[in-house]
Amino acid sequence: MKKSPKIAIIDYGLSNLYSISKALGLFTDSAFITDELSGLRSADAVVLPGVGAFEAGMNGLKVRGLADGIKEFAGSGKPILGICLGAQLMLSKGYEFGVFDGLDLIKGEVVKFPETVKEKIPHVGWNKICPPKKDDWNKTIFDKLDKNIDMYFVHSYIFKPSSKENTLAMSNYGGFEFCSAIYEKNIYGCQFHPEKSGKFGLEIIKNFIKII
């Protein structure tokens, strides 16, 4: 871990910014909120939070000139963590209120929970996450996390990565297995909210800071 790594929390007009910044603030005093390209470029790591709809999220990034900046940042190999909508935006396409292009950092789509789910949508509440295979969390930001712990979810749409290799965690809702965290090298995305998932969620935030 770098000494006081600069962590840019990207503000694109839709996020629970205080919740995420105070969670990061428990472990570092060098996280800052920015809606500018210069802020993004100056960072050692980026957090892309999000509470919102896909189209509104992409528009929020584009009007601030941040969409290309995030792609460039992800390409540089520095760590980036997307949360909920912020993670959904990292995929290639989203289907909420229409079809919209995402940042395409990880190949795949964001689709609605299928009709076959035997539960209410949105999926709101605490649910378990587990690795797709045994020990799959070694050397990731979920390293040493208790398997099968509860995290807080609030969403109607889910990740559908093109490759299984990009699945970091799975969850089950209403009998339906879905991908609840994605990754590729330096890029991480959680469908749930680690900043809102009590002490276990905060472990993930801490681990993310450690890899910077």
């Binding site: 509470v51 709809a53 909420e96 949105p122």
Partner: peptide, 9 residues
């Protein structure tokens, strides 16, 4: 509000 912040919010 739902259109902007998502139904879940």
């Amino acid at each position: 509000a739902s259109k902007i912040f998502g139904s879940q919010c």
